[in-house]
Simulated scan of single mutants.
Amino acid sequence: MADRRNGELAPPTESTVRGEDWYGRELSGDQYTRVEFLDVDMSEITTRNTVFTECAFRNVSFAQAVHTGAGFLNCTFTACRFFETEFTSCKLTGSMFDRCTFTLLKATGGDWSFVGLPGADLRGTTFSELRMREIDLTFARCQKAAFRGVDLSGAWLSKADFTEADLRGSDITALDPLTTTITRAIIDPDQAIVLATALGVRVLPA
């Protein structure tokens, strides 16, 4: 099934981990390639420098999991739960999320470029000091979320809702205020100039 952005098919998996309890497991330096994780409990798991490449996660719980220096490269997440999950200096490039929940998720540092989060409910999540170049946030609900110091250059933001979101320090050159909701969003002076320019307004000294 074409469940990835632009209709690209998810990479085929070659093995399956089904219904296992990985609660509280610690992974360090492990490598997983083209593995399907189905109905697996990864709550409170800790990963450090562990890399998942072209894996599929379906109905997996990552509740209160802590990932540090981990890689989820070109992976697919379907109906997964990310409650209070923390990502620090992680690389998720090319991964796709579908029908996942992200309650209080926090990501600091790392690279989330080319990630697909169309229609995702990211309300109250926190992203700081990381790359999100060309990320797909079309129709995403980002109310009261924090995107601080985030590189959103080339991002797909049409119909996304950033009401009351904190965008300070982020690259928002891809944001079109006519197609993206930014009511009461918090921005800095430089960003105000970017938005004014997008609206065709010239900012001149008084």
Score class of each variant (00 low, 15 high):
residue 110 G to F: 06
residue 145 A to F: 04
residue 83 F to L: 15
residue 148 R to P: 00
residue 140 A to S: 15
residue 131 R to I: 00
residue 64 Q to F: 08
residue 148 R to I: 04
residue 52 F to P: 11
residue 103 T to S: 14
residue 86 E to W: 15
residue 155 A to G: 05
residue 61 S to D: 12
residue 126 T to C: 06
residue 141 R to M: 01
residue 78 T to H: 11
residue 150 V to M: 09
residue 8 E to N: 07
residue 187 I to S: 00
residue 148 R to F: 02
residue 90 C to V: 09
residue 82 F to M: 06
residue 2 A to D: 15
residue 16 T to C: 08
residue 111 D to Y: 03
residue 197 T to A: 15
residue 72 F to R: 11
residue 111 D to K: 00
residue 74 N to S: 14
residue 8 E to M: 05
residue 188 D to E: 11
residue 155 A to L: 04
residue 54 E to Q: 15
residue 181 T to C: 11
residue 113 S to G: 15
residue 11 P to Y: 02
residue 77 F to T: 14
residue 91 K to R: 12
residue 52 F to G: 09
residue 46 T to E: 11
residue 16 T to K: 06
residue 68 T to P: 01
residue 186 I to R: 08
residue 147 F to R: 09
residue 85 T to A: 10
residue 46 T to A: 11
residue 49 N to S: 15
residue 197 T to W: 13
residue 108 T to Y: 10
residue 159 K to C: 06
residue 130 L to R: 08
residue 116 G to N: 05
residue 186 I to H: 11
residue 70 A to D: 07
residue 32 Y to V: 04
residue 135 I to L: 10
residue 187 I to M: 02
residue 124 G to C: 13
residue 9 L to G: 03
residue 10 A to I: 02
residue 159 K to L: 02
residue 72 F to L: 14
residue 168 R to Q: 13
residue 155 A to Q: 08
residue 111 D to R: 00
residue 27 L to R: 06
residue 24 G to T: 13
residue 126 T to E: 15
residue 177 P to L: 08
residue 14 E to M: 07
residue 192 A to H: 11
residue 152 L to A: 01
residue 193 I to A: 14
residue 173 T to V: 14
residue 157 L to N: 00
residue 201 V to D: 02
residue 57 F to D: 03
residue 143 Q to D: 04
residue 139 F to T: 06
residue 138 T to W: 03
residue 68 T to W: 03
residue 108 T to N: 14
residue 85 T to L: 14
residue 174 A to W: 01
residue 121 D to M: 01
residue 25 R to W: 03
residue 90 C to P: 11
residue 190 D to T: 12
